[in-house]
Amino acid sequence: MAADKVTIHVMGKAYEVPSDLTIMKAMEYAGYQFIRGCGCRGAFCGACGTVYRTKDDYRLKVGLACQEMVQDEMYLAEIPFFPGNKATYDIEKLKPTSETILKHYPEVFRCLACNACTKACPQDIEVMEYVQAALRGDIAKAADLSFDCLLCGLCASRCPAEIVQYNVALLCRRLYSSKVAPRAEHLAKRVKETKRGKFDKEMAKLKKMKKPQLAKLYAEREIEPA
């Protein structure tokens, strides 16, 4: 069953492509071999952020080229890179406060609450909400709301205040996880035990075992209930 054809405009140039393709596969169909603008092809890496518009509609829409289906008379451009500001820091020395955010990303102060970032997010993240949370020093909320961020950069590309939301979010998640969330005590304990050599003897015994012995132990091992 051959799909219908639609016309897409890649950076203004028209190509006729099957209607059942994603933007990424349609561009390959048209003859593009990606170097930039293509990564995991499964919505995890943020390499293929795309801005598009359809005919007779002034509004800009966004999507990931690997996920978004083509539409007839779609005008599109990938934005595979955005020259956003990235602060450098030693995470261990930072405190999880709004002062830390403002010191490293003072432009967060300029947020106009216009919501352009949220509208530009292909992951449907409440971007403005997490920027506001970061501004208030609610690091946990900023970390939680921004969790699904792919660092594609589309939010920053639309921001009139020139905030680099995704980097602010990354800083918040690292602050939350290393400073706000309680440390896993059972993990710290296990690290100590391992360093002390608590399991060395048992391991040495297992390592010496031949396959039949190991296979017997394996088949008989106790499985923790689900």
Binding site: A143, F147, Y176, S177, A181, R183, E185, L187
Partner: peptide, 19 residues
């Protein structure tokens, strides 16, 4: 795991910090 936790990887944890 401990290294990643210190670097700030947001592992799923309980309110007490248990993984």
């Amino acid at each position: 795991l401990s290294w990643l936790e210190k670097l700030g990887v947001m592992f799923d944890k309980t309110a007490e910090g248990t993984m």
